[in-house]
């Protein structure tokens, strides 16, 4: 199966801009299904970005982050061709990891 994580990381020389889009329902626990039952909360809790062996960004998310969440940030350093490792884990213990090349 294709990765749930989409990443665009571009180096400008000095800084690397990272955008990520993740496929995840991010169910808040406040929405009912067609039968009127509450859909239990199901959301990503932590998302990490690792470059050169250290965390460059860490997100802690609650259920108020939108479905198929998006995040953008920048860090100093990072060269074209470097690896950027992205991982998430959700409140049910599911997780995914991918490694993207900085462009």
């Amino acid at each position: 199966m294709a990765s749930t994580i989409r990443v665009r990381a571009t180096s400008s020389g000095e800084t690397t801009e990272v955008q990520a889009l993740i496929q995840h329902p991010m169910d808040s626990g406040y929405v009912k299904d067609a039968k009127g039952d509450l859909i239990p909360p199901h959301f990503i809790q932590q998302l990490t970005f690792e470059h050169d062996g250290k965390n460059v960004f860490l997100a802690d998310w609650g259920p108020a982050v939108s479905k198929d969440p998006y995040v953008k940030f920048s860090f100093k350093g990072g060269k074209k061709g470097d690896d950027l490792k992205i991982s998430w884990v959700d409140n049910k213990g599911a997780s995914d990891t991918t490694t993207a090349k900085i462009q």
């Binding site: 294709a2 665009r8 955008q19 889009l21 496929q23 998006y70 953008k72």
Partner: peptide, 15 residues
């Protein structure tokens, strides 16, 4: 549009 939400669907369609 910087990272459009239809991206996943588009990739699935291509596949």
């Amino acid at each position: 549009e910087q990272f459009p939400p239809y991206d996943f669907s588009l990739d699935l369609g291509k596949e």
